[in-house]
Design a protein around this nucleic acid. Structure first.
Length: 463
RNA sequence: GGCGGGGUAGCAAAGUGGUAAUGCACUGGUCUGCAAAACCGGUAUGCGCGGGUUCAAUUCCCGCCCCCGCCUCCA
């Protein structure tokens, strides 16, 4: 089953078939490693992860490239504030990022190149652009891309010349004087000449010491690892302009290829009905949520539970709902029994969910279909073979969505005094000493434990 | 102003030219000493507002209102 995905450039859903007929090659704009990523960042990365998983579960191998931006104004500024070298500083935040990715069950990219380790690639690309008349160096040793030299500029973002000029004017008023020498206000930096505040962070180039512009790194690394033409380029919607527009311009002018053939953009996460911002105090990191007792799996569930192209409103209530939903899935899996843990190759009775997922990555629709199947499937009435199919089909879908089910609360974790109290209450119940049983039960509840009775046994779980 | 994404039950969120999935919450029943858990059910005459097309519109068309994002920092 081929995945159909909406394409930002053509503005229509298109079936994804690999250009080379074998591997779906895609590039994702990665994080700038100068601080902890927040859950809004992760909405995009999680959506990209579901994208990749869906392709792979459908039998299509992928080549996933996601960069690390480890040199820009913010990384330089904050590394200096921290009294660290740029390398030390960005390594620390890269490791943090990776830890969060692992916790959120994100598949690591096949290649994760960083800007700093690809300076020569970027310099080569700039040389080509200058040779071809698409870029020019200025007196201070910077190099700019000549937007007017690329007729298709603005096609992705649908911005007209008028808006481009307007935006550039506004920006130039707000920025410093190093923009003075550009031919056109819309032109953007490919190479930034060394400035005193860059400290030790500069590299040699034919135009003098300096550092690459932000937009160029993605183009250079995509070219290096995916070639002049590749299948999909992805990022948050805010990157459409100018970042992706600039990437297209640079890449198409520096190569003979079309660059990305399909554009996949993820809409922003909202918090409490509005934009996330530090000043509103609603900017959360994974660590913040874990401190409040939520698991990464619950966070992941919330992040995928909205359609990637629609705004998703994040609330604590949605995290609570995610917890219950995951437990419902786990209960169902348990009822099916796990005696036949075979490798799941197809969705089985969850075919409708799988079909829905492949229709423009409709995760909420797919989750709805999964629960629909669960609600009409009565584990007790299934044959061994039917249960096996249901179990492996469920695993198939969970793998495609990257959802790990919560483990059953271990009875071994119950402290001795709690276990003793529970046993006292059970004995009182057997002796039909209801007042004593109720007292014990209340004490347990006060201590944060709940009793689940069954016919001739009981269980104590944390709550 | 331009471009783009939204407005569906208490909350969240799919979907369709023929009368609204699903999760949470709520609620009825079974079970229970009573609960909890579990299991079986129920819950939007309604899909931002006003027109239009149609046998039929939440779904198509026109106009309008509101929310969010982008318009050279930004997932």
């Amino acid at each position: 089953m081929a995945l159909t995905l909406h394409d930002t450039l053509t503005r229509e859903p298109r079936a994804l078939t690999p250009i080379d007929g074998k591997t779906l090659r895609f590039y994702c704009c990665g994080p700038t490693v100068y601080g902890p990523a927040h859950i809004g960042n992760f909405r995009t990365f999680v959506a990209q992860d579901v994208f990749r998983r869906t392709l792979e579960m459908g039998g299509l191998p992928t080549l996933h490239v996601r960069n690390l931006t480890d040199v820009d104004d913010k990384t330089i500024r904050d590394s200096q504030k921290a009294g660290q070298t740029l390398t030390e500083f960005t390594r620390y935040w890269t490791e943090k990022f990776h830890a969060d990715c692992t916790a959120l069950n994100l598949l690591p990219p096949h290649v994760e190149p960083s800007a700093v380790t690809h300076i020569p690639h970027q310099v080569r690309m700039i040389e080509t652009l200058i040779q071809r008349g698409h870029a020019y160096a200025t007196g201070d040793g910077s190099v700019y891309f000549k937007v007017a030299s690329f007729a298709d500029y603005g096609r992705l973002s649908h911005l007209e010349d008028r808006e481009l000029r307007l935006g550039a004017t506004v920006a130039s008023n707000a920025t410093d004087s190093d923009e003075y020498s550009k031919d056109s206000l819309a032109d953007f930096a490919l190479w930034k000449a060394r400035k005193p505040e860059d400290g030790e962070n500069f590299w040699p180039s034919p135009w003098g010491e300096g550092r690459p512009g932000w937009h160029l790194e993605c183009s250079a690394m995509a070219l290096e690892y995916l070639g002049e033409d590749f299948d999909v380029h992805s990022g948050g919607v805010d990157l459409i302009f100018p970042h992706h527009e600039n990437e297209i311009a640079q890449s198409c002018c520096a190569t003979h290829g079309k660059f990305a053939h399909h554009w996949f953009h993820v809409t922003h996460l909202m918090v409490d009905g509005g934009k996330m911002s530090k000043s509103l105090g609603n900017l959360y990191t994974l660590e913040d949520l874990q401190k409040r007792g939520y698991s990464p799996a619950e966070v992941r569930y919330v992040l995928i539970s909205g359609y990637y192209s629609a705004p998703l409103n994040f609330t604590f209530h949605s995290l609570d709902a995610a917890r219950q939903a995951l437990q419902k899935l786990a209960k169902f899996a348990k009822q099916l029994g796990e005696t036949a843990k075979n490798e799941s190759l197809h969705a089985g009775p969850f075919h409708e969910a799988w079909y829905t997922l492949n229709s423009d990555l409709n995760v909420p629709g797919a989750l709805g279909a999964m629960f629909g199947t669960i609600n009409k499937t009565k584990p007790a009435t299934l044959s061994v073979e039917e249960a096996r199919q249901a179990w492996s089909g469920l695993q198939f879908m969970l793998k495609a969505l990257g959802l790990n089910l919560p483990a059953e609360a271990e009875e071994a974790e119950v402290p001795a005094e709690i276990a003793a109290l529970a046993e006292t209450r059970w004995q009182a119940k057997l002796a039909k000493d209801w007042p004593a049983a109720d007292v014990a039960r209340k004490e347990l509840e006060a201590a944060g434990w709940v009793i689940k009775d069954s016919k001739d046994s009981y269980q104590v779980v944390k709550k």
